[in-house]
């Protein structure tokens, strides 16, 4: 079970980024969200949402095995993580972020973006 994106209905509103940062980080700041909406205009006139599909590259890059697969979701074990941040450039979608303390964070499949998206452009399947 992972997130999926339907480009046909996305209208670029970024409600997903808003709820992501507020739900997980308790802040209003879309730039810190664990998914990223981008727009390609004037041509072709389409929106894109980079989402974590739990590909596991971050876990592969982690030298301390601090990123582990639990029920289909890669989670960062903060006790094991030594903040080397090798997982950050390993993510093919640049969606492993770093918080103010230097700790990496990533999508945990909380599904709030799916719930809020008014266009049903995000799904969990």
């Amino acid at each position: 079970m992972t997130l999926s994106f339907n480009q046909e209905t996305c209208s670029g509103c970024k409600a997903c980024e808003l709820v992501c940062s507020l739900q997980n980080l308790k802040i209003i700041n879309p730039s810190k969200a664990m998914l990223h909406v981008s727009a390609l205009f004037p041509e072709p006139g389409k929106y894109f949402v980079e989402i974590c599909d739990q590909c596991g590259e971050c876990a592969n890059a982690c030298p301390r095995e601090a990123i582990v697969l639990i029920k289909g979701t890669y989670r960062i074990d903060k006790k094991k993580c030594d903040q080397c941040l090798l997982c950050v450039p390993a993510c093919p979608k640049n969606l492993v972020k770093v918080d103010d303390t230097g700790m990496p964070y990533k999508c945990i499949n909380c599904r709030q973006c799916v719930e809020v998206c008014p266009r049903d452009a995000l799904a969990f399947n």
Binding site: S11, C13, L18, G45, K46
Partner: peptide
């Protein structure tokens, strides 16, 4: 129309972008 085009955080995008 190519796509609906919404403003920030808008659930009812009135913008219709096309060719």
């Amino acid at each position: 129309k190519i796509t609906d085009k919404g403003c920030f955080s808008c659930p009812i995008p009135c913008g219709k972008y096309g060719v």
